[in-house]
Amino acid sequence: MLELRLVQGSLLKKVLEAVKDLVNDANFDCSATGFSLQAMDSSHVALVALLLRSEGFEHYRCDRNISMGMNLGNMAKMLKCAGNDDIITLKADDGSDVVTFMFESPTQDKIADFEMKLMDIDSEHLGIPEAEYHAIVRMPSSEFARICKDLSSIGDTVVISVTKEGVKFSTRGDIGTANIVCRQNTTVDKPEEATVIEMNEPVSLTFALRYFNSFTKATPLSNTVTLSLSSELPVVVEYKIAEMGYIRFYLAPKIED
C-alpha cells in the first residue's frame, strides 16, 4: 500500500513540467527515504534525478519499496487537471497496475480522482559517485534560463568557463558570436539574487544548449540554480525543491574530435 499526500500539490505539477520533455517513460521509486526518479533521455546524454523526501509529505505511507513505471506525458496531463492550490495524494495498492491521483481543493469542496495505468519499464540506473567539482556556481535560476534562451538564438553549443573573473557563457553560430560574463555578486538585497562562484580550479566545458533549455523548465521550482563543473565530467544542474529535495540534471560534455 502506497499513500503519499502532498499539501503543496503544485510542486508535483512543476516537477512533471520540468521532466516530461526530456524523458518519456520512467520508474518512480518509492521507499522510506522518499519519492524518487532517475532516468536518462533517449540519447543517453542527459539524466534527471529527482528526490522528494518523505518528511516533506503531510502523510507518507510506503509499506514496501515499490517502483512504478509511468509515462510522464500522461502523468503531466493528469496533473494539469489539479488546481495550483490543490492537495495531491498518490495512491497505489500492492501489485496493482494503476496509480490514483486524488486532487482536493483547499476548502475541500471539490475532490477528484484520476486513475492512470502503470507500465513495465526496463530502467537503466547509473551509479553516480560523489565528486569534487572544480567549480560550483550558484545563480538566480531566472538569469540562467535567460542566458540559455538568449544564447540558443545564436548557436547550438555553449562553452561555460569559470575563472577568477567570473563565469562566462559563450556561443558561436552562423550569424556571429556571443559572450555573457556573470561576476560574483553577493552584495544584493536578497540572497537568492546573488551569484556565488566557488572555484578550486579554472574549468571550461562545452555543452549542447538544447538540453540546458530543457533543464530550465525546472525554473519555477527554485529561485536559484547550482552548476557543478569539473573537467571531463558531466555538469550537474541542480534546482533545490524547498523543504523537500531536489531535481538534478546531468549532462555529458562535448569533446573536441
Binding site: L126, D156, T157, E256
Partner: peptide, 14 residues
C-alpha cells in the same frame, strides 16, 4: 562541431 559524449562513459550502470 565537438563530439557529444555519452553519460555511460562517465557513470557505471548499477
Amino acid at each position: 562541431t565537438p563530439m557529444q559524449n555519452d553519460l555511460e562513459e562517465f557513470y557505471a550502470m548499477v
